[in-house]
Design a protein around this nucleic acid. Structure first.
Lengths: 200, 200
DNA sequence: CGAGTCGTTGAACGGAATCAATCGTCGTGG
DNA sequence: CCACGACGATTGATTCCGTTCAACGACTCG
């Protein structure tokens, strides 16, 4: 039970809808009614600023939820736009709040999901403080390796992992190749094994 | 009511303690009993990995909470070490859970705090995807400017803001000076005014 | 069998980190 | 009360390494 969707689907009725690339899911100032889950696709959250410029606040990928803060606000404070054709689930905010007030176990689970997410985001942010691509990748591997075997199974294409790590995919592949060459790791398809901690 | 401390102090009794730099607040594997708030100082959250290496997961600064996930775990999954002399508040996890189950309003507030934090972390992470220092700073300013006046009041030393933006402070000062010179912003002490959107 | 995407490697460029030095301010203690 | 140290703010010069552009092979899917 790591995602909001896993939790909410047990307690609250939802709706589902498809959006074309460029479609608005909601706009800044609209009354905040729903929490959303990206089933498939990608959603861009952007805020209008002075002079009509927009600034990207977040890109929600498939599996992620967004606009959770709408539970506690009357209006949305940003736009949500489908960046690619996307399948989106809607949970009515008032139903969610209602379920929480009636079911403290569900409320607790809700907090657990958020606490987990906060921890994960903090760690990702901390990784970005590491300048060296090599070191950043290596620390990521250390953090995600199974403690006993030192194996990491990457559930997504490496290209996407590079994005998550904030690296150009070319750099990522290059460093991975270098680390394999010097015996730091071993690769086979989607799994990586840490052999030794080259860098101290 | 934006922080856990603001919320919890109304419902749960806490304890306070001082730590010297290097002191352990808890260690990986200890039974998870408390949620913590950094009143003053800085705490390093680190995880031991294979071969006894440790990887930093997060640096908690003053005002921040940490180990919130301990509410839902039997043991801590990382070490917490005071990086500098620090003043730390403890909230017993079971008391917090108890308060939440008895008071659904408090539980809802708890979720609001987390939702806010998640949104904030996502935005910070998204900012880091911007390669150019100039653009990164400028987008930060746009996001944090008062919508009408375009004024940003920075509550911390610029040096610290540079850290939050993931830039060397020299780079930060340089770009700020350049932006002031070319008329993009105006500065006076701790407040910055956006004059025009130089970059499109 | 093409279109699209992942994976991979090479070469060149640019810009941010780094090292270094200086100034101003604030607090502190002798 | 002044000397000193600590730290923020600032600017200059240099280095380095990650991005970018480019090109190619492998593989999948329609």
């Amino acid at each position: 039970m790591n995602t909001l969707d896993d939790l909410l689907k047990n307690y609250v009725q939802s709706d589902k809808k498809h959006f074309q690339a460029g479609d608005y899911i909601f706009m800044q100032g609209d009354s905040a009614r729903y929490i959303y889950i990206v089933v498939e696709g990608q959603v861009r959250l952007e805020r209008f600023t002075i002079e009509g410029r927009s600034v990207i606040m977040h890109m929600a990928d498939s599996g992620e939820s967004f606009a959770e803060a709408s539970l506690f606000s009357d209006i949305y404070h940003c736009n949500a736009v489908a960046a690619v054709p996307s399948e989106i689930i809607f949970y009515p905010g008032d139903s969610v709040l209602d379920a929480m007030s009636k079911n403290s176990f569900m409320a607790t689970q809700f907090i657990a999901v958020f606490a987990h997410q906060v921890r994960s985001l903090r760690t990702r942010l901390e990784l970005r403080n590491i300048l060296s691509a090599r070191e950043r990748i290596f620390r990521y591997l250390l953090l995600n390796a199974s403690p006993d075997s030192g194996v990491i199974v990457v559930p997504v294409p490496f290209k996407q992992l590079a994005v998550e790590l904030g690296l150009a995919h070319e750099t990522f592949y290059r460093e991975l190749a270098a680390m394999e060459k010097d015996g730091t790791i071993r690769r086979s398809d989607r799994s990586i094994t840490i052999l030794r901690s080259s860098l101290i």
